[in-house]
Nucleic acid binder design. Structure first.
Lengths: 209, 209
DNA sequence: ATATGTGAACGGCTTCACAGCC
DNA sequence: GGCTGTGAAGCCGTTCACATAT
């Protein structure tokens, strides 16, 4: 790992995922090499930005020629740690939680949802769910035993903080938070909030008129 | 509408939703007034930022005292308010689309999903879904007839652009895009991308070690 | 004394523009 | 000629710090 993580901007990391997706398509189409200009166009960014982003990871391109598609893919995979299969738990099997359990995008990107937890696992129809739904009480032990470091939080706003505290105490250091709550967590814990209603709200604000 | 929309930062609009949620709690607890300091703490922002954000909408506070909770709530509702009661359609009733149809957060914030569309509505189990699932072919007429301006896009990456084109032609100007594709759209169309796998990916990057 | 409103400083990401290399 | 790599400039949002109001 040649580059210190702290000096790579968060936004660059976000864009790496995008580049990766675009590169996969190019690769499938048999492209061997790509210029910053054409890749940037597909990814909807400026070419200079793309070059800056890639610059964090060394000299990957050849002047006058472009970037080798495969090298780029490998490098991004390396940086994002796609090699390893990260174990994850999901907490709160309501409508949204249930939906996310069916969502296969996580697995595709190398994450494995090991189990789901809920306060009332007995009243949940587990038919067709790809993982067991366990009682919240088992959460701490499970997380510790499996060495889980990331959690997807889908409980109602009211319980968000409470459950987050438990997760953090159990050893979770990354939370993807779908509850509409602002979580207060220790510095070493990273929280990403995804508030679907809010996204729609702000979208509607920005459409003209 | 005293303030021009264009000069209010997108991030401020995002934060307004957060403030609104926090204020609702304070209001329920009978608080009449709140200082930028205490509200900022709950919302997890700096107090100066909160004051700057509110500053866009006039002089709302009283020096030495703070902000009236109710006035703040009304103001934010007003600003985001044109937002609400917007009719929306959802396209792509796979796992994720299906899930989002069950998600009640949208309705709570004033959005009504009128209908869903899919290429194969006949093979979709419509049991228990709150809206009809219609064939894609009906989409254009439906959108025009109902004056729909926003769409939630949940089709596979492969079809994202194609469907987006149809939506835009039909009159949609705001797209909440859950497909892992970068959409190319005309300038007047606003797209917000929500890429769940990407969120998890970048989260995993930023957790220490 | 307390808390807002805001110009100024700061910091970080984006874009430009060009030197350097193929 | 074409394209990368990168210092410099530009831009925008955040934070500071203080004048101002109650």
């Amino acid at each position: 790992m040649g580059v210190d993580k702290v000096d790579i901007p968060r936004k660059t990391i976000y864009r790496l995922s995008i580049y990766s997706r675009c590169l996969k398509r190019l690769h499938e189409n048999g492209m061997k090499t790509v210029s910053s200009n054409s890749l940037a166009q597909v990814a909807n960014v400026k070419s200079a930005q793309l070059r800056k982003d890639l610059g964090y990871f060394g000299q990957l391109g050849t002047r006058g020629l472009g970037y080798p598609v495969e090298l780029l893919l490998d490098t991004i995979r390396d940086v994002l740690g796609g090699a390893t299969l990260q174990p994850v738990v999901l907490v709160g099997v309501g409508n949204l939680g249930r939906a996310l359990l069916h969502y296969d995008g996580f697995r595709k990107e190398g994450f494995e949802v090991l189990a789901a937890f809920d306060v009332k696992p007995d009243v949940i129809d587990q038919e067709g769910l790809p993982v067991p739904v366990l009682h919240d009480d088992l959460m701490i032990d499970f997380i510790a035993a499996k060495g889980v470091r990331m959690a997807i939080l889908c409980v109602p706003a009211k319980y968000g903080q409470e459950v987050a505290n438990v997760l953090v105490n159990a050893g979770v250091v990354g939370i993807l938070n779908f509850s509409p709550t602002i979580l207060q967590v220790p510095d070493q814990v990273v929280v990403t909030r995804v508030d679907l209603a809010m996204e729609l709200e702000s979208l509607s604000y920005f459409i003209d008129q």
